[in-house]
Design a binder for these strands. Structure first.
Lengths: 350, 350
DNA sequence: CTGAAAGCGCTAACAG
DNA sequence: CTGTTAGCGCTTTCAG
């Protein structure tokens, strides 16, 4: 009945792998019926269905996803491209993405753009360009502005959702950085005059860092004080920078009575520890608020006030929006904004 | 020339996607020639090659990986199944795996087994069972013993490399936990009598935790002291447990002069901080060594001595061994052991 | 060096 | 309800 042209059975390792034809032969039906029994059971008589399901288990048959995907134009795999697979932020993001993908019956293909792409193309998408056909869509996280980004995404030839940024025409899932930064700044302003508030930023090129700085500045203005340049600094997302900023600041002025809004928790942690090492009290002399809500905030003593970013949720929503887009390709562009929440802890007293 | 049966062009979003047939038409050659030009350029005349490559760029053609994979039986995707995508350990592991995969021209499909599998099958492999055909092989990290593991892996129908454990017949990449634990214990024994050394473990079911405990005990024995039950405790990999252990221990005995080997850095961190809170000096009263070499060790004050586990390298090697297995399916089973290195810092004095 | 033809394993009309 | 037929987009003999 079966007539496998090359006469050989496909094997992996030493084990033969059953194909739909094998199942059909064993159940004495056509492959079409097997396919139906598996995908649209209601179209198959109970008896044949039983014979088939028996054959399936006996042979340990499992449909080849590749062949399936080629026909249905759906591989059930979505890509996620991150700047770097590293640290708590991305780790949590991926966790959420993975959970959502799984719940929807999909797999997650990862790629990080910090690794040079093999062929010099699509750096922002972490080499996903080579996955054409393999992935149904892609979630890309963007943290730095790139002039060529649009072209890169376009060339990908797959539905895209942008994470934590906005790119024309694409769905986006973003975090309300401005809102969070505003809230944190207002909290500091409640007890500290605007002229004694400082923003210690991450890389100046980093979009999030910029957004937070902008909101900080705007909030100070609203409070009737236009921030001086030295009230807003940028460098890097690291403990070391937080410490360095603190040392430098102490050299110029008295730290007593100041409040620091750090662009992320690491910076904030650095500020807290360095201030303490210099003999200042936190929060009595120096008040500090971080950003992200990472574990570090709970390790700090006093524990660090922070703006919680829903990291897992960000990953989840990215995948969710992507899959919805796949369902309805012609739906209007979507934009989901996730809100942060201020967590006041010991480091910012009040 | 082309005769696409359904007459429609495949599109993604609004953009048409070119197929090999489109390229062939445009270059006025057969699809076979296009395929050759792309895969075995030396078999094609320079002129046709040029025409084809021109057509390729003009159409923005990129081969469909799915179709390619169906023919070649190689998708260029390898899976990695972790207990959980979370925390520094797995994050680094994935980073290494991703880097290696990319360097070898592959993609990485992730799956974590902490998420219930959709169909109740293969919990250990993070739902990779559904990826049959999509992945060329799988790296699985095992941290808890599972009776059904062998069957689960077998059912997967793809080459497998086991990470951080040994499973009959499969390639394995492991960490020398015993060696690292021995080294750490000897270091503590150098200055502290064996009867005052304690092992504070993670979950008792965790294979790594067990291995470290065993080596700790053996090393004490070699020093002429058979450890009492209270010298080896298990609970969980958390800061909280380290703190709790310390409080409990302080209730029973004087902490002065003891040395603690923590099964991971978090536990170690908990011990250090709690001991300090109870008024003991680290390392003067209590000496502590952690395990893993995570960032937490540098944050601790004094910084935490630890046994560095090459996490990125572990991920790298897992993928490397897997890809080598794919190259030579009949090569003898391989086993790669990665060594740890003791990092002595402030917390263990000397 | 190039083209025709035969599939990879599967789904999807279309007739029965 | 079931079988037949036609491909999905690509690689690979096998003849020229």
């Amino acid at each position: 009945m079966s007539h496998r042209t090359n006469g050989t059975r496909r094997t992996i390792g030493q084990r033969p792998v059953a194909s739909i034809q094998d199942v059909a032969d064993r159940a004495e039906v056509s492959i079409a019926t097997v396919s139906r029994a598996l995908n649209k059971p209601h179209l198959v008589s109970p008896e044949t269905a039983l014979r088939i399901s028996r054959a399936v288990t006996e042979l340990g048959y499992r449909p080849n996803r590749l062949a399936q995907a080629l026909m249905t134009r759906r591989s059930g795999v979505v890509g996620i491209a991150l700047p770097d697979i590293h640290g708590e932020f991305y780790s949590d993001l991926m966790r959420g993405a993975d959970a959502e993908a799984r719940e929807q019956g999909c797999h997650l293909l990862v790629g990080s753009s910090h690794l040079a792409p093999l062929d010099g193309t699509d750096p922002a998408t972490g080499g996903m360009g080579r996955a054409l056909g393999l992935i149904d869509g892609l979630a890309v996280m963007i943290t730095e502005p790139r002039p060529t980004l649009d072209a890169e995404l376009e060339a990908l030839g797959a539905p895209i959702v942008v994470v934590d940024a906005e790119v024309a025409d694409h769905d986006a899932v973003v975090v309300n950085h401005a809102g969070g930064a505003r809230e944190a700044t207002r909290h500091l302003l409640d007890g500290t005059p605007p002229s004694k508030c400082f923003f210690v930023g991450g890389p100046e090129s980093n979009l999030d860092s910029r957004a937070r700085a902008r909101a900080f500045g705007a909030t100070l203005c609203e409070a009737g004080h236009s921030p001086t340049p030295d009230q807003i600094r940028f460098d890097s997302y690291s403990i070391g920078w937080g410490q360095r900023w603190t040392r430098d600041a102490a050299r110029i002025q008295d730290l007593r009575g100041i409040a620091v809004f750090a662009a992320n928790d690491e910076i904030g942690y650095g500020v807290v520890t360095q201030a303490q090492d210099l003999g200042f009290g936190v929060p009595d002399d120096v008040r500090v608020v971080g950003f992200d809500g990472t574990r570090l905030t709970e390790i700090a003593r006093p524990s660090l006030s922070t703006v919680l970013v829903p990291r897992e949720e960000l990953g989840r929503q990215a995948i969710r929006v992507l899959l919805q887009r796949l369902e309805s390709p012609d739906a209007p562009r979507r934009r989901v904004m996730l809100s942060t929440s201020l967590i006041v802890r010991g480091s910012s007293g009040q």
